[in-house]
């Protein structure tokens, strides 16, 4: 049984370790044997204008997408968990749709729409599509919290004369903060990593995944690809640990993080 577990995790992680090892290899050829340690590819990556632009663009898009996506997603979560209305299941289905529809099809559709409306492709078009496709993740995470929320506390505050906005600021928001921070970190990584949607809506812009994609055929660029990829990987792992840590610190501690973790991961997708 443990041989099976070890084999599965080896399949998942060994390629990434080898990538990291090659990023430190003192050779322009990405092949065995290792020729000694060197940080030259990291400094070459830092000096590379294209790398700086691609990583900078990804950061810029992700930083713009996070606050908007979290806001829209939280609004949807409130609308869907706190009211009863006709068409509610239709609205819920619509909000869930981006989690199921293939990114490729969404990307083609968005490209089609932008070209029909003669909207030039730019970082803004990438951002708009990222917000549309990522806010349902936020809705899923925040709804999970809102559903378990004890509403009698709010009603008690209201009966005691608190204004609705006081209830929101003093009772609802503090309880939601771990979910909001977790969603923000998740959407950041999601947007930074997304290849498929960006690829179709980028025009002449590059982002980090697009840069990797367009450089894999250039043998001379590969050591730099290794270095940048390893660096990004490291940052992503730290971010994921941060999400984990934040959810553990909540009242309820470890056990509170457990049910949310699968929730986080099932809303993630790997097709790009």
């Amino acid at each position: 049984m443990w041989v099976f577990v070890a084999a599965v995790f080896a399949l998942l992680y060994v390629p990434l370790f080898i990538l990291a090892a090659f990023s430190l290899n003192d050779s322009i050829i990405v092949a065995l044997p290792f020729r000694g340690f060197s940080f030259e590819w990291y400094s070459a990556a830092l000096d590379d204008v294209d790398v700086r632009e691609a990583v900078g663009n990804s950061l810029l898009v992700a930083l713009a997408v996070v606050p908007l996506s979290v806001t829209v997603g939280t609004l949807a979560a409130f609308g869907l968990t706190r009211f009863r209305f006709r068409l509610k299941s239709a609205v819920a289905g619509l909000v869930g749709a981006p989690l199921v529809v293939s990114w490729l099809v969404m990307g083609v559709g968005a490209l089609l729409l932008f070209s029909a409306l003669s909207i030039p492709l730019s970082l803004k078009t990438i951002g708009a599509v990222h917000i549309m496709a990522s806010f349902p993740l936020v809705t899923a995470i925040v709804s999970a919290r809102l559903i378990r929320f004890d509403r009698s506390i709010e009603e008690a505050a209201l009966d005691l004369g608190a204004l609705p906005r006081t209830v929101l600021a003093r009772i609802v928001l503090p309880q939601l903060i771990p979910s909001l921070v977790a969603s923000a970190l998740l959407v950041f990584a999601w947007s930074f990593n997304n290849f498929t949607l960006s690829f179709f809506t980028a025009g002449f812009e590059t982002t980090f995944p697009i840069w990797v994609y367009s450089n894999v055929e250039h043998a001379r660029a590969l050591p730099i690809v290794n270095a940048v990829s390893t660096f990004v990987l490291g940052v992503q792992i730290l971010l994921t640990f941060l999400v984990w840590y934040l959810l553990r610190l909540r009242p309820g501690g470890r056990s509170a993080a457990a049910p949310l973790l699968p929730g986080l991961a099932t809303t993630e997708r790997t097709d790009g």
Binding site: F9, L12, Y13, P15, L16, I18, L19, A189, F192, N193, F195, F208, P209, V212, Y213, V216, V225, S229, V232, L233, Q236, I237, L239, T240, W244, L261, L264, A265, E268, T270, D271, G272
Partner: peptide, 16 residues
């Protein structure tokens, strides 16, 4: 570990 593997960029995994 499983979630971490899920959170890494697809492009990086395929490249590796």
């Amino acid at each position: 570990l499983l979630v971490l593997a899920d959170q890494t960029p697809t492009i990086t995994k395929v490249y590796a």
